[in-house]
Computed example of a mutant assay.
Amino acid sequence: MVYVSKRIQEIPASGTIAISNLVSDLKAQGIDIVSFSMGEPDFVTPSNIIEAAKESLDSGFTHYTPSTGIPELKEAIANTVRRDNGINVSSMNVLVTPCKQAIFMTALTYLDPGDEVILPDPGWVTYEAVIKLCGAKPVYVPLSYDDGFILSPEKVEAAVTPKTKMIILNTPANPTGCVLPEDTIRAIAEIAVKHDLLILADEIYEHVIYSGKHFSVASMPGMIDRTITVSGLSKTYAMTGWRIGWAISSVDNIKNINKLQSHSISCCVSFAQEGAVEALKGTQEPMHDMVAQFKKRRDLAYDLLTEIKGIECQKPEGAFYLFPKYDANIHSVDLAKKMLTDAHVAITPGAAFGPHGEGFFRISYATSEDQIREGFSRIKKFMADL
């Protein structure tokens, strides 16, 4: 008898996590692997944040918190998004939850079997999975390399049907590093209003921008009611293991999503929330320093990539990924496997990010400059041999 549910059977394992697990196994065997597979900063969480969490532990703050988050953190988040994103909210509009959890819960709260969700292709690996888990259908809008992977409003509108329920926006984008222009976001917002659609706005990389400017769709008049904005601290404060993020929306939307939170994780870790308060209210210098380092690494990685024959790449404006295309006649999954076994370099195959990711692969440059130099030296030799 097969006990696993059909909904689990029908979704693939995370392509990025699968590669990361394989890298960990190989490293445990003593193999020298240069890993460009995980979207995780190699920096240590800033010391002021760590100390705030330690003090919270020492004070005995180790019990349940309100399911939506502690008041101090909700207020800090509301103040931050008002200041940085122009979204007019109060703490009542905030749900403290891990960013990935926010995406899952939003999908489960609003999607029914048969609903359709418009999403960029290529796009982050988990969007497709959460849509299918809800019994809904992902509708891919192909992104064009020649257009800088900017989501086309015309293609979005062409994808709308009577079954469409939601549009997913991700800017800066994983895996492409594209920062959507404000006029593009405004045009897509008009489509959502015209067809009475929800928008899930994933803005987890909002502060990792090198050119262009971040614009939040929920800052537009009337859009807070139909937009669920998710973000967090993982990428810009090197807090991936802390699992602290948030969802921002109307009070009613937050109440609905919180029903799932109260029946699942109950609340985020108490002392991690105290650390998050310090992250938002304390000195921002470490965050700015990290973004400056990401830019240096972006420039180094991009320059080294341009020296490799058979590969070309758009220069990303945000996040910390390169998404190069290659001209070798090999499936991206097979390319990733072969590069790992032959060159001991871990990348993520483009196919993991959607049908139009085939012929590409993703490189995360959230690692040291020494690792970038060594890894790209290996990739250059590998591609020449290939």
Rank of each mutant, 00 (worst) to 15 (best):
Y3Q: 14
S5F: 06
K6T: 11
I11M: 09
P12I: 02
A13D: 13
T16N: 08
T16E: 15
A18P: 00
L22I: 01
L22T: 01
L26Y: 15
Q29P: 00
G30W: 11
I31H: 09
V34K: 03
S35N: 05
F36E: 01
F36M: 01
M38N: 03
P41G: 01
V44N: 13
T45P: 08
N48M: 06
E51H: 12
E55S: 07
S56W: 05
G60I: 01
H63Q: 11
I70E: 03
K74C: 02
A78I: 07
A78K: 01
R82T: 05
N85L: 14
N88R: 14
P98M: 05
P98H: 09
I103R: 08
L108Q: 14
G114P: 01
I118R: 03
I118A: 02
L119F: 10
P120M: 10
T126M: 12
I131L: 04
C134L: 02
C134Q: 05
G135W: 03
A136E: 05
V139K: 10
V141F: 04
D147C: 05
V160E: 02
I168A: 03
I168W: 04
I168N: 00
L169N: 08
P181D: 08
D183M: 10
T184H: 07
I185L: 12
I185A: 03
A189P: 12
E190K: 15
E190C: 09
A192Q: 00
H195W: 13
L198N: 06
I199K: 09
E203N: 11
I204L: 13
E206A: 13
Y210H: 15
S216Q: 06
D225G: 07
D225K: 15
R226T: 02
S234L: 08
T236F: 12
Y237Q: 11
W242M: 15
R243Y: 13
I248L: 08
I248R: 00
I248H: 03
I254N: 04
Q261V: 15
H263F: 09
H263C: 09
S270T: 12
S270L: 08
S270C: 12
Q273F: 09
E274K: 15
V277S: 11
P286R: 12
M287L: 12
D289K: 15
D289N: 13
F294Y: 15
R297D: 03
D299R: 08
Y302R: 07
E312S: 15
L322I: 09
P324L: 04
P324M: 03
K325T: 12
K325Q: 14
Y326K: 11
V333I: 10
K338P: 00
I347W: 05
I347K: 03
I347M: 07
A352K: 06
G359E: 03
E369I: 10
Q371R: 14
I372C: 06
E374L: 15
S377F: 04
I379C: 10
I379D: 04
L386M: 14
